[in-house]
Design a protein around this nucleic acid. Structure first.
Lengths: 340, 340
DNA sequence: GCAAGGTCCGAAAACGTTTGCGTGTTGAAA
DNA sequence: TTTCAACACGCAAACGTTTTCGGACCTTGC
């Protein structure tokens, strides 16, 4: 076992000073050609690589960006990470991922931990609990210390920073309009309770689409699901008592549960009921019938977020502060769960 | 914008030396009670947190573990990460995730990068390209420098380190035996080419199960898929020309493709053909029919890997070197795609 | 009144870098 | 021979910690 090589060891070995070694390796003109060659050869031979920690300390930069997400076992978030990772790597940044598990305390903990030197900035999506508490002091504090933060997906007005979101309302409208265009007359929605911001927005989109097309709004066709555990049963009972021919679900899960329930009730998709989901994940692609769905383009969101963050990080300190909100367009992916 | 507080600033502000501040905050008996209180109060008021980078440099430890995986948009890997994260956090470690995208070069790059001070050890699953190349010098080098490495899932004998794997062979046998027990007479397998070690092992399990139950081995019922892009078509054609009543697929993807193809051919699952998959992901749970599958318990694998790594990290330096291989048991999850 | 011992604190080194500046050596010009 | 660039290199500080060691001052006991 041979421990890591340092400048000091090279210096001792070659009988020069540490600074000479450092300069030689950076090809400084201060150092004689001969010495440079000798040092470079030695470094290469023993595979010298500078210590990142020491560099970080010296430069007060880590070239690392932190991602904090509510959960990782979740298709959408992984695509976002993938997007972040791609552009981060292009620009020579590293990515460190932490999970809040939707807990406020863990979000604060992770943020504090990473903020103390480990990362130069953050990309994060708020924990559910945080949004309920409406307590964002940990974020404002970090921002006050001069660390750039980019919020995505689950964002909130109170925090002043760059944001990347999708046009939830427009996306939902696209979905419902597609149902209308393909001949559905009575369209229901499977959504979440209102404090989940995306659920609320998508519900708004649903309502807007109905209004703009002169469809009556029937509260009876709206199911707001709170308890994810029992969503299957709840959906089944809801569908049994509604005579609808079009259904918009605000996520994949609800969509497939609905299709399953409908099938058990002897109703075919899309012949009897058309179904549109939200989020284009593994399920949508592989389900039978495959799901018509609103794609959120997570990869693109991640890439945008990373770009925003890195821009801030590499901005000259005298440039004026300004926060952008990037809206990533959704698109409707037509598949087999709706009529064509 | 108020920049981060350091010991030096506290010292200047309170007109004591840096070392006094440091000691006071660690509650050292060397410092007078009065001074201690004063310093602690000040630190608390302004929310002092020591700089992790400086600590890492001093202690030559980062309390960070690096995970390198082939891809993140993949249910199994996310469960593993989740497992690692859980125990890492319990023990006060951070997790940094990098992706190799199944590329050898990116695996080497990431490993090199993280090895230079960013992490204390690694948990990784080899990239496909790495396994083809059979080039593991980057790993042995890192190990030689004294950094512990734990390999999981895609492991390889040539590298000497701790490993966490599942009993692929036994898992596959369980799957096939279940098919046999539920009355299947002619059982096929959808697998990968042999250099993907898990594919090879699962194929072995399939063969063993057949042999032990005196089923004839028919090479004609084995489909080795190389090109993931066209797997759907390939599977369809394979099934069209085989008259089997049981099918074992080495991953979810293949299983659902098969079910789709069978259905198009007018064959019902599980009435005409029973199907068992491998990996218990979103798809298996939500597909209709839901999939009987071999669960790999990714979370448990991640947790085991993290425990192994942290044990090595916190081991006294004089303890003897020894490498363990932990085998995480698989279990068969019975659902609707097989007869009961 | 003086040495011994306690109490409380500060100086400095160390972790591995980078970099501005000082210094010694060389060679050539005067 | 003297002088002065140019060149090649080393010193030291800095980043933010921790920790060992020693020093100043006060108290105590004789």
């Amino acid at each position: 076992m041979r421990p890591k090589l340092t400048l000091k060891q090279i210096a001792r070995e070659l009988d020069v000073s540490i600074s000479t070694v450092s300069k030689a390796l950076k090809d400084s003109p201060e150092i004689g050609e001969e010495t440079k060659q000798k040092i470079k050869a030695f470094a290469k031979l023993y595979n010298y690589k500078p210590n990142n920690i020491a560099l970080s300390l010296k430069n007060r930069k880590t070239r690392t960006i932190g991602i904090i997400i509510p959960e990782i076992v979740h298709y959408f978030f992984t695509t976002v990470i993938s997007g972040v990772e791609q552009v981060a790597n292009e620009k020579g940044y590293n990515v460190i991922v932490c999970l809040s598990n939707n807990s406020f305390d863990r979000e604060v903990l992770n943020l504090d931990l990473l903020a103390n030197g480990s990362t130069d900035g953050f990309i994060l999506s708020l924990a559910k609990e945080t949004m309920q508490k409406e307590d964002y002091h940990h974020l404002t504090e970090v921002i006050n210390q001069g660390m750039p933060v980019v919020l995505f997906d689950r964002v909130v007005e109170e925090v002043h920073c760059d944001k990347v979101i999708i046009d939830d309302i427009i996306g939902a409208k696209k979905a419902v309009e597609h149902l209308i265009e393909t001949g559905c007359k009575k369209i229901g929605i499977l959504t979440t309770v209102d404090y989940v911001s995306v659920g609320k927005l998508r519900t708004s989109g649903y309502i807007e689409a109905l209004e703009e097309n002169d469809y009556p709004l029937d509260e009876n066709l709206i199911l707001k699901i709170e308890d994810m555990e029992n969503s299957e049963k709840e959906i089944g009972e809801f569908l049994k008592t509604r005579d609808l021919d079009g259904l918009f679900a605000v996520n994949e899960q609800f969509a497939v549960s609905a299709i399953g329930a409908l099938r058990r009730q002897g109703r075919n998709v899309p012949e009897d009921v058309s179904v549109v989901g939200f989020t284009d994940g593994e399920l949508s692609k592989n389900f039978i019938p495959s799901l018509t769905t609103v794609s959120q383009h997570g990869t693109r969101m991640g890439a945008e977020a990373a770009r925003l963050l890195i821009d801030k990080l590499e901005r000259k300190p005298d440039e004026v502060e300004s926060y952008k909100t990037v809206i990533v367009e959704t698109s409707l992916v037509r598949r087999e769960s709706t009529k064509s």
